[in-house]
Amino acid sequence: MNDATQIVRERATALLADGTVAAVVGWAAGRGDHDRHVFVARTPEEAALLVADQYCGALAAKRVLSLLDEGKIALVARGCESRAVNRFMADRQLKRDQVHVIGWPCPGMLDPATGDALKRCTECQRRNPVLSDEVVGDPVPEPELDRFAELERFEQKTPEERRAFFQDMYESCIRCYACRNACPCCTCRVCFVDQERVGWMGEEFTADQARYYGTVRAFHTGDRCIECGECQRVCPQHLPLMLLMHKQVRDIDGLFGPYPGGGMEPEGPDPLRTYHTDDLEEFM
């Protein structure tokens, strides 16, 4: 058992035992050696099942939102989870005192199937939690990666190639909505695709409808995206969804920046929910 798992279990047990929190959100092991899934521990006995190792690929943060009725919730938070907490607070989904953040400087996660670094971790810019009530272990060095490398490579393509690429991508989408359900920015009470009224979105499984869903969802979360890459990780078709997010984040940075990315600060307006009178003008 690694140190992080040990400490997380101890801390979770203590927090649950003294009644500080009603539940601890972390990960537990599944059937296979490296299978991990998000896990909610509500008793000290369940806390002993928590795991914090290099195979905890899933973003656990969003689970907190559905547990708020149970009381204060503790969350084992890496960089991405802590940014999600900031995101929730900025989106008025969560108050700071509703969550106890057990910070966990992230060692970088591995894909359980291949043993390679998880895609979303290779594009990470923040491994240490941006906020926490306590921290498990020592801070880790922040990665010096160019998270836009794939985007830049992709932008070399001609518009026609990109058109073909996205046509393929949207034809491949099975509209399971895993990306939406996993996304920490997707907290609308009723998603636009779930509107009962005719005309919001067609239910047929076509590339057009998938494009409508994919593009609109990407844009709706574009200026709030915390770049955790969870949407791409959960996609059963392995579609490169982060391309769209990185594209917008970089555009926003260039046009209205400097912009470090969503969820870095607990407050402050999101770039598309504010304006400056001297913004760049290109529609005159």
Partner: peptide, 9 residues
């Protein structure tokens, strides 16, 4: 339900 995303995969 504590970890299912209730997606349609």
């Amino acid at each position: 339900a504590d970890y299912c995303l209730t997606c349609g995969t």
